[in-house]
């Protein structure tokens, strides 16, 4: 019998809730209270997340975010600023010592990205992992990923772009030089793609989520069993949301 991992399909949530759930699952798993967990989710309202080491005020046009009703949040993972709108986001939480996870961080990025690539293949999209943390198709980025390891536990989350709105993204992100903004937009359009663009049609969130579920099962040779957050995880989510991710001290700390 295949090893069973938990599957969470938490639907669309705010930036603060989304980041709080990932952290709550990380804490619960590190305490041995829940099995390895794969989660799929979306963002409502749309939001920008920045990497742990980035400066919020330097990366994001906060006034424009407020004006357009776009949330912003600092992640506990490194990496760059991401505009989350039309995408499916995944996260995986698993013990560092699990046989499926390479000890080497770069190799573990590759392994987990392998699951996303299989998921894309299930949708008819061939892709490649490009270190450090990108997945590309036809030379263009379709997925970005970020990993942290805390309390001997791995959390990796990442995006699978379903569509891209580069103009909107650039209205929310600060650019070093306004004069070259048009060129930057043109460059990003050349370098980033989406499921919609590759397949030439819209694909439902549920369909992508299903393809990704199968992808994770194939890559890790496990069965993902639909589950829910435990009561403890729900409490932790509320706590992290209130005390961390929605708090200015956290988001503006750098």
């Amino acid at each position: 019998m295949k090893e069973q991992w938990r599957l969470l399909e938490t639907g669309y949530g705010s930036a603060f809730t989304n980041m709080a759930i990932d952290r709550a699952v990380l804490v619960a798993n590190s305490g041995g209270k829940v099995s390895p967990t794969v989660r799929f989710y979306g963002w409502e309202p749309s939001a920008i997340s920045i990497g742990y080491f980035q400066s919020l005020a330097e990366e994001i046009d906060i006034d424009m975010c407020k004006k357009l009703g776009v949330d912003y949040v600092r992640r506990i993972t490194g990496g760059g600023a991401v505009y989350h709108e039309k995408e499916l986001t995944y996260s995986i939480v698993i013990s560092e010592s699990h046989r499926a996870i390479p000890k080497n961080i770069m190799k573990s990025y590759g392994k987990i990205c392998g699951a996303v690539m299989k998921g894309l293949e299930n949708l008819g999209i061939k892709s490649t992992y490009v270190p450090i943390n990108d997945i590309i198709t036809n030379g263009k980025k379709i997925s970005g990923n970020a990993q942290t390891r805390k309390a001997k536990t791995v959390l990796q989350h990442g995006t699978v772009l379903t569509d891209v709105n580069v103009e909107k993204m650039f209205s929310l992100l600060k650019v070093p030089n306004e004069k070259i903004k048009d060129k930057l937009i043109a460059d990003v359009k050349e370098r980033v793609t989406s499921i919609k663009h590759v397949l030439g049609k819209e694909v439902l969130f549920e369909e992508i989520s299903h393809a990704m579920k199968i992808g994770f099962e194939q890559e890790f040779d496990v069965e993902l069993v639909k589950g829910t957050l435990t009561e403890e995880e729900k409490e932790l989510t509320k706590k992290f949301e209130k005390e961390c991710f929605s708090v200015a001290d956290w988001n503006h700390r750098r």
Partner: peptide, 15 residues
Amino acid sequence: INITGDFFAYPEEAI
């Protein structure tokens, strides 16, 4: 000094 950017460091808090 503040070291910022889109890099990764483990553990993050060590920065």
